[in-house]
Each structure stands twice: as C-alpha cells, then as structure tokens.
Design a protein around this nucleic acid. Structure first.
Length: 280
DNA sequence: CTTATCGCCTGAAGGC
DNA sequence: TGCCTTCAGGCGATAA
C-alpha cells in the first residue's frame, strides 16, 4: 500500500523517466477511475499533445504538471505506474495507457481498481478537491505543534485514527502509523484527549522521522509495491511492529500483538505501548 | 459540527 | 479438488 515514502519514491523515479515527454494519445480502459472530468473522452482529449513539465506530490497524491493541465493521481491500495520499456507489458490490470510521441508509453496498473485520477486546468488542482483538503505534509512541511496539538486533544477518537486522517497530517498509512505509535510508546487505542503536549510532540517527531528514513530506503515493499522502474523498497527490514505478529518486540522481547482498530489490522507491543487514560 | 460505518475491488490464504 | 469465507485497506459517501 503506497504511503508517503512509496509515493515519493514513485514520483522521483517517474520524473526521471518521463519528464519532457509529450503525450500522443491516452487510452482509458476502466472509466470509473477517472473522477474528473465526467466524460472520459474529454480526459483523453485534454491530455493529447501535452508535455510533462514536472511531477510533484502532496501527502499520498501525485500531481503531474503539463503545459495547460494538471493531473492528480492517487494510487490507493495497489496502483502503480510502469513505463513500457522498463516493466511488464500490458495486462488485464492495465487501466490507463499514456502513449508518448517518442513511441514509449506509461501504463497505470491497479489490481483492485481503487486508484483515482482527476484532470484540471492548470493551477486549479491544489485549490480543488481532493487535493484541497490535504493537510500538513509530513515530509515537505514544517509541522506546527501549536496547530496540531489542540486538534488531537479535543478529539475522543483513537490516536491511530487521528494520525491516519489526511486532513490533519498527510502521508501516514497503516504501516507507518503503527511504526510511529510504537516508536512513541503510545497504544493505538489511546484517545486523543488522553495525550499531553509532550506525547503529541513525540508522535509528530517520530512520524516525521519514520517517514524520512523510509524515503531514504525507497519505501517498504510488502506484497506488491515496487517503484516505477520495478525496484523494491528496503524499509521492510526496519519495521518494528507492522507484520511482526508474534515476533519479539525489538525493545523488550514481548511478542508483538495484532488486533483491529476501526477495521484495520493493528500491530503493537503490549508492554511498550500501554493505553493511557485521560488525566484529572 | 463530530465520529462511525459501508462499499468499492481482486487475489491470496485458510477451513472443511 | 473445490467451494466458501476472510483478509488486505484508503477514502468518499452516507448515516448517526
């Protein structure tokens, strides 16, 4: 599941592969993934003749900047881009094909069909949904404790769910949120209003640290993720709790437990991460 | 306003 | 072998 570090790795790889290429044609095979414009044919026509000038990222969204338009892409669970010359040929999970004027092409593949694409006139993507509501980027932005702290401590939600809320902090998914909570010694079910300022500060610091380390390692490859050139990430070797059920905690050797929090698989150390009740 | 739940999707894995 | 169920999970839509 691509989270911030995986999306950033895809962005960097993709940029070196397709920058300055011009689109000859676009072929959408699975219309439902195109969320804007409403008409898929219009999506294809708007991109025709456009040259890719830059690829940026906010949270888990990729933003392709062309001469006159901007394309927003979210990979969700298993979306991946592959250039034709470097990766597998077209398959039954190829949903969009961008063919360039030099004869090469870019394929969007997605087994679960959860990924989305939006196309906007230039300059509108960041001002419009879905990117409009993306919160503070944990890799690019300065995180302001005075802004985040009250939002967390006014909430009755489990801290894991708060940290997964992309409108507050953008970039964490199920892997890195479990890792962040472990490094911060916070139990995933702890209520937001049970945390003090120091604990919130620690969570933000650890979230940024784990994201930065994972970007350096090229992301985490679990099951299917690879970068746009087919390379795997290396961060899975560094995971402390995610996918480590029944293995000893790296700190205290207690077996890592797995439970569910709001339907998501959740890994934690029952000794290092204890639920804290609200004080007073 | 907030928070919780559902549905979208397919393939792998496990039970019998 | 084969059928059925569960799980993986981000996030928009809908409900409470």
């Amino acid at each position: 599941m691509p989270e911030l570090p995986e999306v950033e790795t895809v962005r960097r790889t993709l940029k070196t592969l397709i920058i300055d290429k011009t689109i000859e044609s676009v072929d959408v095979r699975f219309a439902k993934m195109i969320k804007k414009p409403d008409d898929v044919h219009a999506f294809e026509l708007m991109l025709k003749g456009q040259t890719i000038r830059d690829i940026t990222r906010r949270g888990k969204f990729l933003l392709f900047i062309f001469d006159d338009v901007e394309m927003v892409s979210h990979l969700r669970m298993e979306g991946k881009f592959a250039t034709r010359s470097y990766s597998e040929p077209e398959n039954k999970h190829t949903h969009v094909i961008f063919t360039f004027t030099d004869g090469t092409s870019l394929h969007y593949n997605d087994v679960r069909k959860f990924g989305t694409m939006h196309l906007f006139p230039k300059g509108e993507a960041l001002e419009t949904l879905p990117m409009k509501q993306v919160g503070v980027d944990l890799y690019l932005d300065q995180v302001d404790l005075d802004t985040v702290y009250p939002k967390i401590t006014k909430s009755t939600r489990a801290i894991k769910n708060i940290l997964l809320d992309q409108q507050l902090l953008a970039g964490l998914g199920n892997i890195y949120v479990d890792e962040t909570l472990f490094r911060s010694n916070v139990h995933p079910m702890t209520k937001g209003h049970a945390l003090n300022r120091l604990e919130v500060k620690r969570l933000l610091t650890e979230a940024q640290a784990v994201i930065e380390e994972a970007v350096k390692q090229g992301g985490t490859t679990i099951r299917s993720y690879t970068s746009a050139d087919g390379n795997m990430g290396m961060f899975q070797q560094t995971l402390n709790v995610y996918g480590q059920t029944d293995k000893p905690c790296p700190v205290c050797r207690t077996p890592i437990e797995k439970t569910k929090v709001s339907g998501r698989g959740t890994h934690f150390c029952p000794v290092c991460q204890v639920i804290k009740q609200p004080e007073e």
